[in-house]
């Protein structure tokens, strides 16, 4: 047996769609990620107008089941009381309550909350809690034209008056199932979108197609998160 000793770096689910753009790649949480596409000045401006950023590399942990909320609370996580809402589970980690009894935690940029929870979860020991293996493609959509883009790809009313600050919506974006919310990132209101990773390249292509028409485009991870 010849197990390599080095930890294998995973590819982001949207790598296939990004390859033609030849972004500057880096690694975060064991996953390759596009750090920069066209340079800071272009992307900083784009971020304000309409930017699409791949954040699939963020760490996630998800459980469901009748005892999921209780189990998370026992692990010291703050869980949202309302269905389909989100909150901070712990500093730097957001938690989405998907429906009644499913929870998705995501470390924002880096952190080890999700890894620790995963490590501490032993299926056989907890009744009524089931781990949900996930492989999301995840995106940040930023800029003044983000709502315009979404008004083409999503049929829901996503104006601030309709989409609560802590609301989570499971809906369709570009015709496929996706989870969507708004969030404030470095003082800027942005939208977050998650979809199944196998749809990631498609979702990236659709977001880019519309973003480009509206004067926006790809924004690297570095533009939002200075390491």
């Amino acid at each position: 047996m010849t197990t390599p000793q080095t930890v294998m770096i995973r590819k982001t689910p949207v790598a296939y769609a990004q390859q033609a753009l030849k972004p500057k790649m880096g690694e975060l949480n064991g996953m390759e990620v596009a750090l920069e596409f066209e340079g800071a000045s272009v992307e900083n401006a784009r971020k304000q107008l309409l930017g699409v950023t791949d954040v699939s590399c963020f760490q996630r942990f998800s459980v469901k089941g009748p005892q999921a909320a209780a189990w998370l609370a026992a692990k010291g996580m703050n869980t949202p009381a309302a269905i389909n809402s989100w909150d901070d589970a712990a500093p730097g980690t957001m938690i989405l309550r998907l429906g009644g009894s499913e929870f998705l935690l995501e470390d924002q940029h880096s952190g080890d909350t999700c890894a620790l929870l995963a490590k501490g979860f032993k299926q056989a020991e907890v009744a009524g809690v089931y781990k949900v293996q996930r492989a999301d493609a995840a995106f940040i959509l930023s800029g003044s034209e983000a709502l315009d883009l979404l008004s083409e790809l999503c049929m829901l009313d996503l104006r601030d008056s309709a989409l609560g600050a802590n609301a989570v919506v499971m809906t369709q974006v570009a015709g496929i199932s996706a989870t969507l919310l708004r969030q404030t990132l470095n003082g800027q209101q942005v939208y977050r979108i998650w979809c199944d990773g196998t749809y990631g390249p498609y979702m990236w292509d659709m977001l880019m197609e519309v973003a480009k028409e509206l004067g926006g485009g790809a924004v690297g991870l570095s533009c939002h998160f200075k390491k």
């Binding site: 269905i83 389909n84 429906g99 009644g100 049929m155 829901l156 919506v169 499971m170 809906t171 369709q172």
Partner: peptide, 9 residues
């Protein structure tokens, strides 16, 4: 669970 949505969902 999720409120009012278009039929396509």
């Amino acid at each position: 669970m999720n409120g009012v949505r278009p039929l396509s969902e």
